Amino acid sequence: DKPLMPYMRYSRKVWDQVKASNPDLKLWEIGKIIGGMWRDLTDEEKQEYLNEYEAEKIEYNESMKAY
């Protein structure tokens, strides 16, 4: 599988927590909350997800070359 983009990594990490805090919200409403949370992160906080993505992207590209 292709590596997940940084925002999607963050979304997967916080989804269950946001859903548990807001059990009556629809999926798109939860997505909207998470989008706002992502925008509110500092560049340093986002960098963690970007670093994970870049590392996985290198691994993915290497595995595709071998294939």
Rank of each mutant, 00 (worst) to 15 (best):
Y53R: 07
N51D: 11
E45G: 04
K19C: 11
G36V: 10
S11I: 08
Q17E: 14
I58K: 14
E45K: 06
W15E: 09
T42C: 09
R39E: 11
E59N: 12
Y49Q: 05
G36Q: 15
Q17Y: 07
V14Q: 05
E48W: 04
A55D: 10
E56G: 04
P3W: 06
K65Y: 08
E29G: 01
W15N: 01
D24Y: 09
Y53I: 07
L4S: 11
G35Y: 11
S21C: 08
D24S: 12
Y67G: 13
E54V: 05
K65I: 09
G35Q: 13
P23Q: 02
L41D: 01
M64V: 10
I30R: 02
A66L: 08
W15T: 04
Y7N: 02
A66S: 14
Y7P: 11
Y67I: 15
R12C: 06
W38G: 03
K2Q: 04
A20S: 10
G31P: 12
Q47R: 09
D1L: 04
M37Q: 04
Y60V: 13
G35I: 07
Y49S: 03
Y67Q: 15
T42K: 15
L50M: 14
R12H: 07
L50P: 02
L25A: 14
L50S: 12
K46V: 04
N51V: 11
K65P: 12
E62D: 11
G31D: 15
E54R: 07
K19S: 11
D24I: 15
P3D: 11
W15D: 02
Q47C: 05
I34L: 02
A55N: 11
I30S: 02
Y49M: 05
K46Q: 06
I34R: 01
I33G: 02
K57D: 11
Y60W: 08
R12I: 04
R12Y: 04
I58V: 06
Y53E: 13
D1W: 01
Y49R: 04
D16T: 05
K2N: 10
D43C: 10
E59V: 10
Y49V: 04
Y10W: 04
K19A: 11
K2R: 06
K57Q: 13
Y60Q: 10
M64S: 13
S11A: 10
V18W: 00
A55M: 09
D16L: 04
G35N: 13
Y49A: 04
Q17G: 08
Y53P: 13
I30P: 01
P3G: 07
K46E: 02
L50E: 15
W15I: 11
R12L: 09
D43V: 07
G35D: 15
Y53T: 09
G36W: 03
K2Y: 08
A20K: 13
Y49E: 03
A55Q: 13
K46T: 01
R9Q: 02
D16M: 06
I58H: 12
K65L: 08
Y60L: 12
K13F: 10
S63G: 11
D43R: 12
Y60D: 09
I33W: 00
N61W: 06
M64K: 09
Y49W: 05
D43Y: 06
A66D: 06
Y67N: 14
A20M: 09
V14K: 01
Y53G: 10
E62A: 10
W38Y: 02
M8G: 09
N51S: 12
A55L: 09
L41H: 02
P3T: 06
D16S: 10
P3K: 02
I58M: 12
K46R: 14
R9G: 02
D43W: 09
A55C: 08
E48M: 12
Q17D: 14
Y67K: 01
S21K: 15
G31N: 15
Q17H: 10
W15Y: 04
M8E: 15
S11V: 07
Y7E: 15
P6I: 00
R39K: 11
W28H: 02
E44H: 09
M64Y: 09
D1K: 12
L27P: 15
R9D: 03
D40F: 00
A55S: 11
Q17T: 11
G36R: 12
K19N: 02
K19L: 07
W28A: 07
D24H: 10
D43M: 13
N61Q: 14
W38K: 04
M37P: 00
G31S: 14
P23G: 02
I33P: 05
Q47A: 08
Y10S: 00
Y7K: 12
L41K: 03
Y67S: 15
I34P: 03
G36C: 11
K2T: 09
G31R: 15
E56L: 01
Y10G: 01
N61G: 12
Q47N: 08
V14R: 03
R9S: 05
K19Y: 07
E45S: 04
P6M: 03
I33S: 02
R39T: 09
D40A: 13
R12D: 08
E56Q: 07
D43E: 13
W38H: 04
L50H: 13
W15P: 01
L41Y: 00
Y7A: 14
P23F: 01
Y10E: 00
Y7L: 08
L41V: 02
P6H: 00
G35H: 14
K32M: 08
E29K: 02
S21P: 00
S63H: 07
K65M: 08
R39Y: 06
Y7R: 07
L50T: 15
K19Q: 10
M5H: 13
L41S: 03
E54L: 06
N22H: 15
Y10A: 01
E45Y: 03
M37T: 02
T42R: 09
L41Q: 03
G35P: 01
L50F: 12
S63M: 09
D1F: 07
W15V: 09
D40M: 06
K19H: 05
V18G: 00
Q17F: 05
I58T: 12
E54F: 02
K57A: 11
R39M: 09
L25K: 13
D43G: 07
K26Y: 00
K26N: 15
N22C: 05
N22P: 00
V18H: 11
K65W: 05
N61Y: 09
M37H: 01
Y7T: 06
K19G: 02
K26T: 13
V18A: 02
Y49G: 03
S11E: 15
K32R: 11
E48C: 08
N51W: 08
D40Y: 01
Y53A: 09
E48V: 11
G35K: 15
Y7Q: 10
E29R: 01
A66M: 12
P23D: 00
L50N: 06
E56V: 03
P23V: 01
D16A: 14
G35M: 10
M5D: 15
T42Q: 06
I34F: 00
Q17P: 03
K46P: 01
N61K: 13
W28G: 14
L25D: 00
Y10L: 00
L50C: 13
W38A: 02
A20D: 13
A20H: 08
V14T: 01
V18M: 03
K2M: 06
A66W: 06
S63R: 14
K46A: 01
G36D: 14
P6K: 02
N61H: 08
E44V: 08
M37F: 00
V18F: 00
R12K: 14
E48F: 05
D16E: 13
P6C: 02
E29V: 00
L41R: 03
K26L: 02
L4H: 10
R39I: 04
E45R: 05
A66C: 06
E59M: 10
M5V: 13
D1M: 03
M5R: 09
Q17N: 13
I30T: 02
E62H: 08
E29Q: 10
M5N: 15
A20L: 07
Y10H: 00
D16K: 09
D16W: 06
L41T: 07
K13E: 14
V18K: 00
N22V: 07
M8W: 09
P3A: 07
M64L: 12
D1I: 11
P23W: 01
T42S: 14
Q17I: 07
V14A: 01
P6R: 01
K57N: 11
N51P: 05
K65N: 09
K65T: 11
N22L: 14
Y49H: 05
L41M: 09
L27M: 13
E54S: 05
P23E: 02
N22F: 11
K13C: 02
R39H: 09
Y53C: 10
K2S: 05
P3Q: 06
I34Y: 00
K2F: 05
M8P: 06
K57I: 08
P3R: 03
G35V: 08
E54P: 06
N51C: 11
I34V: 15
E29S: 02
G31Y: 04
K57L: 12
Y10V: 01
E54N: 07
M37K: 06
P6V: 01
I30W: 00
L50Y: 15
I58A: 13
G31F: 15
K32D: 09
E48Y: 06
K2L: 04
K13H: 03
Q47H: 04
A55I: 09
I58P: 08
E45I: 06
N51M: 05
S21V: 07
A55W: 06
G35S: 14
E45Q: 08
K57E: 13
M5E: 15
P23K: 06
I33Y: 02
R9Y: 02
E62K: 14
S11L: 12
P23Y: 00
